[in-house]
Amino acid sequence: MALHPTFMIGYYTFKGGLRDRLVQSLLLTGLFFLLSTLVFSSFSMRQPLEVAINYSLATVQILTILVTLFLGLNLLSREIESRAGYLVMGQPISRTVYLLGKFCGLCLLSLLVVSFLGLCAAGGLLLVKLGLKDTPAIAWGNFFVAHIGIWMISLLLGAVTLLFTALATSAVLPFLMTIGVWFIGQSTQAVKNYLEAGLGEQQMPRFLNWLVTGSFYCFPNLSLFDFKTYAIYGLALPPLAVGYAMAYGTIYTMILLVLATTLFQHRDMT
């Protein structure tokens, strides 16, 4: 079976990720955290099940993003900075194939991570539910969509890492910059809502207003992928919001990939 080189690189990136000690330990931490759902939710007075869903989804989200960030650091940035990339780039394949292969591997890894953590979370929730009487049903469909949202965030951040890696010559810089994008991307919507509600107009200088609007359009809006509320409280998911988020995420990621591969073409591998 002859796979396209892109998928071969992806497959071996995937393999490398699985053998990454850091990732293994993060997954173990995740398992521990998801087990602690039982304890965490027991402190709730009125809504232990909601708290359990909330806690496990937050755990899945933070860990998936952390794993993606560290994988990006170890499998993309470190590889390109170290000479391991020479080996692959010395082959008759284009740099675009190399970069896309790496991204494919990263996608696969984060999918695995999010599914693994999601299944653990589901197991933990079933345990919590066993110990409770008269609880509402868990909205499993929403729970699933929330995971897709988390995966989308990790893909987007993976593409951001890829872009910064294509630009920067140090390995840690793209990692730190991606963390920055993550922080900004999670809050642009909130800040914009705050400004639009007219709450901050008095204190905010005008240039700050422009800055916020600028970053809202420039940085990825990660709040769009947050379907946790729907999963926690079993609310009806608006299909338009889900569809819009998916389209936005896909297009944004593709733009990042195009930019990254274009920039990477012209980069010196010193």
């Binding site: 709730s44 708290v51 909330n54 937050a58 933070i62 999670q186 809050s187 909130a190 946790k228």
Partner: peptide, 14 residues
């Protein structure tokens, strides 16, 4: 608080 919660405001609230 919402900005610090990094997309987990329900957890921050809890």
């Amino acid at each position: 608080l919402e900005m610090m919660a990094l997309g987990n405001k329900e957890l921050a609230s809890t």
